[in-house]
Design a protein around this nucleic acid. Sequence first.
DNA 1: CTACTGTATTAGGAGTGATAATACAGTTAA
DNA 2: TTAACTGTATTATCACTCCTAATACAGTAG
Lengths: 125, 125
Amino acid sequence: MFELDVRSRKPIYEQLVEKLKQLIINDVLKEDEKLPSVRELAQQLTINPNTIQKAYRELESQGYIYSLKGKGSFVHPSGKVNNEEELKKVREELKKLFAEAIYLGVSSEEIAALLREVEGGQEND
Amino acid sequence: MFELDVRSRKPIYEQLVEKLKQLIINDVLKEDEKLPSVRELAQQLTINPNTIQKAYRELESQGYIYSLKGKGSFVHPSGKVNNEEELKKVREELKKLFAEAIYLGVSSEEIAALLREVEGGQEND
DNA sequence: CTACTGTATTAGGAGTGATAATACAGTTAA
DNA sequence: TTAACTGTATTATCACTCCTAATACAGTAG
């Protein structure tokens, strides 16, 4: 499915969250698609099931997946997330990153171009 | 100068880096202005000098300040940073955050509006 | 019932964050 | 030169987090 950098300074569960987020956002994992079970993914990646669970719990709290006891974990449909707390965080992050980028010399035109680039590759309902 | 949240899950030195970055970006700390010395700031904030140094080292590696042995640490002039590694990181972060925001339901129009908002409050050379 | 799912808890080892105490090196002013 | 600043480096110690390991419980499906 993907690789993890065990010797990285970043925690494994955070790397997992990021990678799965990318797969969900880029529609590799479709709406309501079943994710690998905690134990199955743990075996595939040769890491502990608890670490997987921690990543899934984080993804659920951020609104990217939902979990049903006894059934599995599934991709949360885009747009129907409605996680006001996460939205607030993302807006704050955007503003902070904009100020940072501009300070470092990235023009607002280039930033807008990056946005259009990402926008093109998305297509949401 | 500012406050830190010791009982936060975020490391103190990272909080320091963020706060100082904000002060520099928002021009509260002017170009080439001298920052408090490692020991002085440590005393003011009641934290260990080594923690301050770690934050300063990080800020220097990111291009926000420069340090001169025996003299002090100073604000690196905006635009003259020229830290290609940091620029690359920031561009990657922007793209990742754009995809994330759009997935969560933030329209690209709103993102562009946030950019203009930040852009207005900056004014760089 | 059996074999899957998610979820929770406890325990232990490894690594990081923060503190403390020094030490060394370069600058500046008396 | 000396004294008092600066940044920088090292070592040791403690607490906390990350990760693993081993269970256990609860809900679902055949």
